[in-house]
Simulated scan of single mutants.
Amino acid sequence: MELIWRGIIEAVHMILSADREVLQITWLTLQVCLFSTLISTILGVPVGMLLTFKSFPGKKAVLLLSHAGMGLPPVVAGLWVTMFLWRSGPLGEWQWLFTTNAIVLAQIVVSLPILISLSYSSFKKIDKGTRLQLKALAPTKIQTLLLYLKQAQFGLWAAVMAGLGRVLAEVGAAMMVGGNLQGQTRILTTAMVMEVSRGNFEIALALSFILMTIALALTFVLLRLQQKEASV
């Protein structure tokens, strides 16, 4: 208990003293996590809608991969991203390895299946009666898209929260593809692992409290948006 209390004090001290390295790590964490979640949402929601309302060759395979990908171990994702970005890999010419771009890419790999699967479930819950009513109104494609998004919005917000939670908690892939380089690719989760390996448990705890505060704040904002949209 004393160690936890010292960790809380250390976290408050880091924030109040505006520790430059901690602020840089925190800001980088926010950048990569929000950007990867945004891209996963932009890609995942349309794919989830496509899987719900359209039939095409390979649909079952895509569904299987997206559902299975929800439990994809981050280190496996990190390994594959590393191999693709390695200098002799298919994407080696991008020179993304050990950069924030590589971390974003790895986080997209682990969060995209969650967005696809949960979006698919959200659209699937729209009852057939509602679908028939929409068809009877003969809306345009854009109007149909907006109506379906409105009907599934509660579940879609939940999908975004789940995706964000996955990337905020991710450490294995980020460590593998980013290298935990100070001032360049070090984020809160990888910094925590490093401090634990050094035996600096107070600093690791302080960083964990900062990360939990960020997670709670972002989740609170998304919950408010979810409730606001649901009440409209």
Rank of each mutant, 00 (worst) to 15 (best):
89 G>C: 04
116 I>T: 08
204 A>V: 07
96 W>A: 07
182 Q>S: 08
127 D>Y: 09
105 L>V: 10
62 V>D: 03
203 I>Q: 12
56 F>Y: 09
158 A>C: 10
130 T>D: 10
78 G>A: 04
57 P>T: 03
55 S>F: 05
71 G>S: 05
96 W>L: 03
53 F>V: 04
28 L>G: 01
125 K>R: 13
230 A>N: 15
60 K>G: 15
26 T>K: 01
17 S>A: 15
183 G>C: 01
32 V>G: 00
36 S>E: 05
29 T>H: 03
78 G>M: 01
4 I>Y: 06
211 L>T: 09
148 Y>K: 12
56 F>Q: 09
193 V>E: 06
74 P>I: 03
203 I>H: 06
23 L>T: 10
85 L>K: 02
39 I>P: 01
209 F>Y: 08
31 Q>C: 08
15 I>G: 09
42 I>L: 10
223 L>W: 10
128 K>W: 07
131 R>W: 12
115 L>C: 05
231 S>Q: 14
16 L>F: 13
192 M>G: 00
45 V>D: 07
38 L>F: 14
110 V>E: 01
172 G>C: 02
191 A>S: 06
186 R>F: 01
115 L>Q: 09
76 V>H: 07
59 K>V: 05
10 E>F: 02
148 Y>D: 13
152 A>H: 11
197 S>W: 04
160 V>I: 15
217 A>V: 15
42 I>Y: 00
196 V>Q: 09
16 L>W: 11
49 M>R: 14
134 L>E: 12
223 L>V: 14
55 S>W: 06
33 C>R: 03
190 T>H: 00
175 M>S: 01
202 E>C: 02
19 D>A: 04
131 R>V: 13
135 K>M: 11
40 S>C: 06
54 K>S: 09
71 G>W: 02
122 S>K: 10
55 S>K: 12
219 T>S: 14
211 L>S: 08
83 M>I: 15
226 Q>N: 13
180 N>H: 00
64 L>I: 13
200 N>T: 04
228 K>I: 08
132 L>V: 08
96 W>M: 05
186 R>T: 12
169 A>C: 07
145 L>N: 09
22 V>F: 02
83 M>W: 09
188 L>P: 07
46 P>E: 04
127 D>I: 11
119 S>M: 07
141 K>Q: 14
125 K>A: 15
116 I>G: 08
44 G>C: 05
54 K>L: 04
202 E>R: 07
45 V>E: 04
111 S>I: 05
62 V>R: 03
173 A>G: 02
121 S>P: 09
194 M>P: 02
29 T>P: 02
114 I>K: 06
175 M>R: 03
142 I>D: 05
2 E>K: 12
19 D>H: 10
9 I>S: 13
161 M>L: 09
4 I>W: 04
140 T>Q: 10
